[in-house]
Amino acid sequence: MLQFVHLYVFPGFADWEPAFATAGIQSPQYQREPGRFEVRTVATGSGIVRSMGGLALLPDLALSQLKDADSALLILPGGDGWEDPERHAEALDRAGEFLDRGIPVAAICGATAGLARRGWLDARAHTSNAPAYLNGTGYAGAAHYRDEPAVSEGGLITAGGMAPVEFAREIFSQLELYEPAALEAWFNLFKTGKSEYFARLQRAAETPVPG
């Protein structure tokens, strides 16, 4: 059954932060069940959105059209405006609804601050760009902060802005996109650039997993 992973896009979103994740989801090569997931973009409106890198995107649908049953995961990238409590209010509302209903949410960089202001990091292990960055939001979850590139707990994935590969790995793990050996090889390939991991990735994807 085809499932959608929804990427929230907005003017000035940091296009490189979710790129490893969306590219992996869209590419069937090495996946456990090729074609099971597809990426769809969502925005507050229906007009063209231009990313921080200057890419012009026409969103697939508006946030108001996003239905819980249609989404396997919602990705919130960093970028402009997360310091403004109202700028991304609709996206944060949907993220909260998803988490309440057990649908995973993945937030990176500035988006973690948006979640922090809403209280979604108060009781979950999480990370971000730095402890001080989240402390500036006035949130109550400092005791649950982890000094790690990416953290996953209770259906919520968080990452710092310098950890797009780790962010993707946690998303792939949440979706069970790859077999464990393939996921490990994928991660090491993109973290090290060593060709030996490409060969391992190919072997892992070609090796049948005992049923």
Rank of each mutant, 00 (worst) to 15 (best):
D84Q: 11
G110W: 11
P85C: 05
L58Q: 14
D70F: 01
K67H: 09
L99C: 05
L134W: 04
A130W: 10
D70C: 01
A125I: 03
L73Q: 02
A143L: 06
P131R: 10
A111Q: 02
M52C: 00
A132Q: 12
I103E: 00
C109P: 08
A113L: 15
P85S: 06
I108A: 11
S152Q: 11
A106L: 00
D60E: 11
D100H: 13
D147M: 13
A116P: 02
D60R: 09
V151T: 13
P149S: 05
G96I: 05
S64M: 05
G102K: 01
A106T: 01
H88F: 11
L73G: 00
E83F: 02
N129G: 12
Y145G: 07
G110M: 12
P59C: 02
L57G: 07
E148Y: 04
A95Y: 06
G102S: 03
L74G: 03
G54Q: 04
G136T: 06
R118M: 07
G79K: 10
Y133N: 12
H144F: 14
G96Y: 05
H144S: 13
Y145Q: 05
G110P: 07
P131Y: 03
K67W: 01
Y145V: 06
L115R: 01
A140Q: 15
V151W: 12
L58W: 09
S64H: 05
D60C: 09
L92N: 00
D84E: 12
A89V: 07
A123F: 03
L121I: 08
R124Y: 14
D68V: 11
V151R: 09
P59I: 07
A72R: 00
R146F: 09
S64R: 01
G54C: 08
M52I: 00
S128C: 04
W120M: 15
S64F: 00
W82C: 07
P77C: 11
D147A: 15
R101T: 06
S71F: 03
A89S: 14
A69S: 12
K67Q: 14
R118S: 04
P77R: 01
A123D: 13
S152Y: 11
G54A: 07
C109I: 09
A107M: 06
M52N: 01
V151D: 08
D60M: 07
N135P: 00
G141K: 07
E148C: 10
I75A: 05
P59M: 03
Y139F: 15
Y145T: 05
L58C: 10
L99A: 06
H88Y: 10
I108W: 10
K67R: 15
I108L: 11
A56N: 11
D80Q: 14
P77K: 02
L63E: 06
T127F: 04
N135M: 05
P85G: 05
E86Y: 00
S152N: 05
L92H: 02
D122M: 12
G141C: 11
